[in-house]
Design a protein around this nucleic acid. Sequence first.
RNA 1: ACUGCAAGUUCUGCUAUCGCCGUGUGCUUAUGGCGCAAGGAGGAAAGUCCGGACAGUACAGAGCAACGUACCACCUAACGGAUGGGCAUGCGUUUCGCGUGCAGACAGUGCCACAGAAAAUAACCGUCACGCGUUUCGCGUGAUAAGGGUGAAAACGUGAGGUAAGAGCUCACGGGUAGGUAUGGCAACAUAUGUAUCGGGUAAACCUUACGUACUGAAAUGCCAAAUAGGUGAAUGAUUGAGGGCGGCUCGCCCGAUAUUCACGGGUAGGCAGAUAAAGAUGGAUAGCGAUGUUCAUCGUAGAUAAAUGAUAGCGAUUCCGAAGAAAUUCGGGAGAUACAGAAUCCGGCUUAUGGACUUGCAGUUUUU
RNA 2: GCCUUUGUGGCUCAGUGGUAGAGCACUUCCUUGGUAAGGAAGAGAUCGUGGGUUCAAUUCCCACCAAAGGCU
Length: 133
Amino acid sequence: MTKPFSLSKSERLKSKKDIDTLFLSGKAFFVFPFKVFYRLIENEVVTEPLLFGITVPKKIFRRAVDRNSIKRKVREIYRVNKPELKKSLSEQHKTLHLMLVYVDKTNMPSKEMEPLLINVLKKVQLKCTETFI
RNA sequence: ACUGCAAGUUCUGCUAUCGCCGUGUGCUUAUGGCGCAAGGAGGAAAGUCCGGACAGUACAGAGCAACGUACCACCUAACGGAUGGGCAUGCGUUUCGCGUGCAGACAGUGCCACAGAAAAUAACCGUCACGCGUUUCGCGUGAUAAGGGUGAAAACGUGAGGUAAGAGCUCACGGGUAGGUAUGGCAACAUAUGUAUCGGGUAAACCUUACGUACUGAAAUGCCAAAUAGGUGAAUGAUUGAGGGCGGCUCGCCCGAUAUUCACGGGUAGGCAGAUAAAGAUGGAUAGCGAUGUUCAUCGUAGAUAAAUGAUAGCGAUUCCGAAGAAAUUCGGGAGAUACAGAAUCCGGCUUAUGGACUUGCAGUUUUU
RNA sequence: GCCUUUGUGGCUCAGUGGUAGAGCACUUCCUUGGUAAGGAAGAGAUCGUGGGUUCAAUUCCCACCAAAGGCU
């Protein structure tokens, strides 16, 4: 776990059960162009403090190429910008499950998407610290 | 040299940084982590329209039903696909090329609006003969199918003979249909000859004939299996006993919730297999008109599962805009591997979407020899 | 990944081969002092797209496009 920018299998939200509970009982807010679902888990010893997933609805983007490209862009930006959030979480000894849903109808280039996604991460970090206090 | 048409091949390269997924290998604190090496998306991966492999279920055989296919031969694991041929038809630059189509309406049932006399064993008007009467004409009986403004379609066509009037009624020429014979061809079929016959269309209406097809799909199927709850059996403890049964009551008898431990089986989350070496690809030889087959050599080719194959910067094929120039080209700026599009068990086809680059063939134009 | 259904005026739906209709909505007129309701008249559709069968296609066949639903 020396690489700060990695995004391997263990850091992704993969279990169907976890995803279902996140959508059912997790909290949510909206920052353009994402709808963000998140769930904080306390007092559990887990190796990974931050699990992440991204979803693009099939109804809006019918072609698989568009869906894949959006997912790749989001994953790439998240990978570069996540260490700060992760650090604060590990200091608080908490686990965060995070799921983004892309709701915009256009496939925007990554340079436009980057500031928006950074905004999202900042807001998530803020919410985490609030609940801690 | 340019343009057009057809066929085929091919399309994210190099450097740096940060990352993703299998595989192999080494180290290690070993279901993990780290390092190294070699790899990692298409011609349609798409639509899911056909055909198979594979798996489970069903199944003696045969038939019915349902569904599909439909000129002939051949290829193939198989096909509704491909190849070669036949016939019909449309277009063109017409001894040829390109495209499209292909069982049966002489087995039976149905349908054919409007118009029209009539839409399928035709008879309203008409024509002709005979009889009667009120004799410029009308009525009745019979014959006939030449003519009749319709319609998508009107009862083989034209001419002659024939007749009371007419009619394939007869003849000549032509046309259609079904058998026969001869020749060529594996066959479809073609050519020639002669016989019989001539009352539409529709089978992508029901149907007939021939042939074929079990059903369900990898979320199939097989295996392992945590926690919790509950089931079955055994043991221990308690000696308490809710509740139920022996048709109503009492007694009595039987079952028995609850605690702990062990075992067994089902099975959820999850995991593993299925699952990536294949009706494989490339090249040569050979058989065949060809699809394709046989044989030899070489290669070893993605395997994810909220789903990898990417991002950023630079170089670069190419391309757009502006300026200079007769042109080649030069300079400046922009886009930059782009169109259509992303494997999900695997193959063979079909259909649909698509921007370039290159090769070959054919045709046309211009220039030079 | 696999399967099924549906596309008809602005909206909701009929229409089993013969030139497409109903209700609501729209326009004009009548009625009323005015509005609503009511009455009369009218307009509005290449039947999702493209081929084929047929004399003729919304209907039958094929391909494509779009929308909706189901299977864990």
